[in-house]
């Protein structure tokens, strides 16, 4: 392109010395479209803030029923906010391209006299660094948070360092059943859990793959035939929470639901007593 320079007149009389880098950035920022895009960028980024709040707030249709779920909500919130600037920037550029830099319609091929920008090492480098940094952040966050979540699942978040309660989860078409081996193998089709005591779920299936999902507790694990899978949580909210099957398991997959009921110590003991367990 530089060979053609002699024939095309410069738009402004050139100065006799190159601008220092700071000034070059200054002239770049002074261009009108840069200001406009920056303004749109800010707006497009801020759009994501309420979205992040809504997403994290409504995960599982309500407040978290365990610290584990809290960690999941935090992850979604942070990821949305961290990616917002990049998403907002792309959105701003396509909006400005759509409306801002001018448009021509008609059937004839127009001569738009657009600048032939072929590559811009600075832009590519900055973009790559920003994106790589973002990806690096997401990976790091994911690794740390996954470790945290695994520790929660292993019962690290219970205040009194109680021994985990083992619950055997059996899935079959289209029914959940739960048995408590330490309580003499009593079994139930509703999941009863003690408050603030870690629980370890061992899950297996009698026929096809199911997925055991206590929605507001963030417990989710496939229930496979021919394998035993593990999950765990410490419920820290009293109440009743939906359990759904999250893996297509045949005709009544949609209705393979039950409740997880978290009981305080007195209710838990009386439930055990009603099941004939003496402790």
């Amino acid at each position: 392109m530089s060979q053609d320079l002699d024939t095309s007149p410069p738009p402004e009389p050139p100065t006799n010395r190159p601008l220092p880098p700071g000034d070059r950035l200054g002239t770049f920022l002074a261009r009108p479209y840069v200001k406009h895009i920056a303004a749109i960028w800010v707006v497009c980024t801020l759009i994501w803030v309420p979205i992040a709040y809504w997403l994290a707030g409504n995960m599982g249709a309500g407040p978290a029923a365990s610290k584990l779920m809290g960690a999941l909500k935090e992850t979604v919130f942070v990821f949305t906010l961290v990616s917002a600037p990049l998403m907002g920037f792309v959105l701003a550029v396509i909006l400005y391209s759509w409306l801002g830099w001018g448009r021509v319609s008609g059937d004839e091929v127009p001569d738009l006299k657009n600048p032939a920008i072929k590559g811009n090492p600075i832009a590519v480098t900055i973009w790559t660094i920003v994106v790589s940094f973002l990806a690096f952040f997401l990976v790091t966050w994911g690794i740390v948070e996954y470790t945290v979540v695994n520790n929660y699942a292993a019962g690290s978040d219970n205040p009194e360092k109680l021994q985990p309660l083992e619950v055997h989860v059996t899935g079959q078409q289209w029914l959940w059943s739960f048995s408590y081996p330490e309580q003499g193998g009593i079994s139930s089709e509703t999941l009863f859990l003690p408050h603030n005591r870690p629980v370890v779920f061992k899950a297996t299936s009698k026929d096809v793959i199911h997925n055991f999902w206590i929605v507001p507790m963030g417990v989710k694990i496939d229930v496979n035939p021919g394998a035993v899978t593990l999950a765990g949580v410490t419920p820290d909210t009293l109440g009743s929470f939906p359990i759904r099957c999250a893996e297509l398991c045949g005709m009544h997959h949609a209705f393979m639901q039950t409740q997880a009921v978290v009981l305080d110590k007195a209710d838990w003991n009386s439930w055990l007593a009603s099941m004939g367990v003496t402790s």
């Binding site: 055997h168 297996t204 299936s205 035939p225 021919g226 394998a227 035993v228």
Partner: peptide
């Protein structure tokens, strides 16, 4: 190994 339909092995 895991035995089908049981929690033990």
């Amino acid at each position: 190994p895991t035995l089908f339909g049981t929690f033990g092995s």
